[in-house]
């Protein structure tokens, strides 16, 4: 399987568009799952998938054939997702009304819409909202550690950060999640009391 993928990558590097299409078709689902974890919604995940493959196509000449294509693509996807999260955060900040110049503190709203409230469980929504409060680097470090089971050292390497900085990004993420989800960890009786 590994040799087969390597052969397809070599054909794609040689300029065979169809070979790249095969890579897209075989890796799309994995890329989507990671992108969804990182961005928290289907539409954004689809955008990240497109962007990741486009970037991969343009950088194919830089791909080291001794590496695994899946690992390389995973890294590109994380970078694309982080860029996407950054852009979304900035756009959300800009959309905030600035009528009163004294309101200098702006906050990004992550409240789900009524449709989402109806179609999903409350806990899942709260988790999604809590994950939405993380900064791009915190979310990336947490998702890679918690869901992708990568070690701190691997995540640091992937994000271009030192291990200590990566650890602290995970710590900050867990602290924020605890703060956001504390009411949902109590028993239902305690919550309604």
């Amino acid at each position: 399987m590994k040799d087969e993928t390597a052969a397809i990558v070599a054909r794609a590097r040689a300029g065979e568009e169809g070979a790249f299409g095969l890579l897209v078709e075989s890796h799309s689902r994995d890329v989507f799952r990671l992108a969804y974890r990182m961005t928290g919604n289907r539409e954004n995940a689809d955008d990240v998938v497109q962007e990741a493959f486009l970037r991969a196509f343009r950088s194919l000449h830089r791909f080291d054939e001794r590496s695994r294509f899946g690992t390389w693509l995973h890294r590109i996807t994380v970078n694309c997702a982080m860029d996407h999260l950054r852009r979304s955060n900035r756009e959300a900040s800009r959309r905030q009304p600035q009528a009163d110049e004294t309101i200098l503190e702006r906050q990004v709203s992550h409240e789900p819409g009524p449709e989402r409230l109806a179609e999903s469980g409350q806990i899942e929504l709260q988790v999604e909202r809590a994950l939405g409060t993380l900064s791009p680097i915190e979310r990336s470090a947490f998702v890679l550690r918690h869901f992708e089971h990568q070690s701190i050292a691997e995540i640091g390497h992937q994000l271009g950060a030192r291990s200590s900085a990566t650890k602290h990004a995970v710590f900050r993420a867990v602290r924020k999640l605890r703060r956001e989800l504390a009411p949902w960890m109590e028993t239902p009786d305690a919550r309604t009391a």
């Binding site: 799309s28 689902r29 994950l131 960890m185």
Partner: peptide, 17 residues
């Protein structure tokens, strides 16, 4: 309590493409 928190996050589903 930490385990409960991190297991709660685990419940977050990813839609199957």
């Amino acid at each position: 309590e930490l385990c409960r928190l991190l297991q709660l996050v685990e419940t977050q589903p990813v839609p199957e493409p």
